[in-house]
């Protein structure tokens, strides 16, 4: 049921002029994709430094809360641009992307990463004054930081794999994979 609705929505998006204009423009589509990659450097680059600081591997002699506070703004700017360009990339190829198992896994990982980030910030705010000058964060924050790095590595990997159609609906897929990829009967 939900897969049918998603397919209908994707087909409606695909038929809009904006979607066709982006996909059919060599330069526009490729520059959006290039910007998406460049924002990975900004957003995930900052995120990596915050997480590595919590784990004690980067800037251990600088207060952890200073690192988190100062790098948060450029990270969020990068995330906003990454999100906008990501939406535009989906808008350009909605029918293909909607039925990509990698895209779906990527979305799940993004949601988990979001909740992990909320948990991280909540714990950070509550306890930073007691440990922020220590080279490593307390155990629960280190777990969050390691999880964050792992989840974003997954997001990058699945994002890259969207380009590959190994498990797309026009292939011969097992039932569970077909349902997970959002395939519907013609």
């Amino acid at each position: 049921m939900i897969n049918e609705m998603l397919v209908q929505f994707a087909e409606w998006l695909y038929a809009t002029g904006g979607s066709r204009a982006i996909e059919e423009s060599f330069y526009l589509y490729n520059w959006i994709e290039t910007t998406h990659v460049l924002t990975i450097m900004v957003c995930l680059g900052m995120l990596a430094f915050i997480d590595l600081r919590m784990l004690g591997y980067a800037l251990p002699n600088v207060s952890a809360s200073t690192i988190a506070d100062r790098l948060n703004v450029p990270m969020m700017i990068g995330f906003a641009l990454m999100f906008i360009t990501g939406l535009l990339l989906f808008y350009a190829k909605p029918t293909y992307t909607n039925q990509s198992i990698w895209f779906r896994i990527k979305m799940v990982l993004l949601v988990v990463a979001f909740f992990n980030a909320i948990r991280f910030h909540r714990h950070m705010k509550a306890s930073a004054s007691t440990w922020c000058n220590e080279p490593r964060a307390p155990f629960n924050l280190r777990v969050s930081a390691a999880l964050s790095l792992g989840l974003w590595a997954g997001v990058v990997t699945t994002g890259r794999l969207i380009a590959y159609d190994w498990y797309h609906c026009y292939r011969d897929l097992p039932g569970w994979l077909s349902a997970a990829a959002g395939c519907v009967a013609d």
Binding site: I40, L44, G45, M46, L47, A153, V156, T157
Partner: peptide, 18 residues
């Protein structure tokens, strides 16, 4: 190849920007 390259690019970008 590609995914690891992108992850390393993110860290390189972070180190350059920081």
């Amino acid at each position: 190849g590609q995914s690891l390259h992108l992850m390393a690019l993110a860290v390189l970008g972070g180190s350059v920007l920081v």
